[in-house]
Design a protein around this nucleic acid. Structure first.
Length: 206
DNA sequence: AGAACGATCGACT
DNA sequence: GTCGATCGTTCTA
């Protein structure tokens, strides 16, 4: 399973946020693999971005993870009940990360559905809104602050170029997809950074 | 010690 | 579209 390299994560955060679209995220849970295709990301850059937890190189117990080496998982609690997963980017010491906002399920779907919905039936509505939000993704992958700081080049949580590299059955990549950029979600407080077009999505071409 | 707030979600009108 | 849940993090004193 060819993982994305340390060098991949060390690149510019905006480049990484775009390049991560279409890549495959794998979470090992016991002897089962949960996996999904990345379809939505956002970039956060401490150096210049008031929406970033480490804006202006602000160093606290929480932001410490953002200062660790590229290819580290930054997971934090939000609104008292949800978690968000980020991939630390840029050379070590530059606090920056890509927030994962959306996945398409590829493997372990039943387990993910149970983690997210328990025994409730998987309706069309639930299927449609399965992994389209950062809190939903973390719930479905059983990721909490206990996983904060995980090395993404390790065996528990990692990324691959495609499903073949994840040791999964290949799937046909939908042709005619394109990258859409726009303002990030939920950062209206962040003054000028509020309007930065740092949210990226894979969308079907018309 | 206390208060304000949040990179969200789901239920509801 | 609106709104409440729920608690760790951060800042102020």
């Amino acid at each position: 399973m060819a993982r994305l390299s340390r060098e991949f994560y060390a690149q510019d955060t905006l480049e990484a946020a775009r390049a991560l679209l279409g890549k495959v995220l794998v979470r090992r849970l016991g002897d089962e693999l949960l996996a999904g295709r990345i379809v939505e990301t956002e970039a956060y850059v401490g150096r210049c971005d008031k929406a970033c937890h480490a804006y202006g190189y602000r160093r606290t117990a929480r932001t410490e993870t953002l200062f660790s080496q590229p290819g580290t998982a930054y997971i934090y609690l939000i609104y008292g009940m949800y978690h968000c997963l980020n991939f630390v980017t840029e050379p070590e010491g530059e606090p920056a990360a890509v927030l994962l906002r959306g996945l398409e399920p590829l493997a372990g779907t039943e387990t993910m559905a149970r983690l997210r919905y328990g025994d409730k039936p998987l309706t069309a509505y639930r299927r449609k809104n399965f992994l389209n939000g950062p809190g939903k993704v973390c719930r479905a992958l059983a990721l909490t602050r206990a996983e904060n700081g995980l090395d993404l080049t390790g065996d528990t949580l990692f990324l691959c170029d495609g499903p073949e590299d994840a040791g999964l059955t290949p799937f046909p990549v939908p042709a005619g997809e394109t990258v859409a950029a726009g303002p990030r979600i939920g950062v209206d407080y962040a003054e000028e950074a509020r309007d930065f077009p740092w949210r990226f999505r894979l969308v079907k071409e018309e």
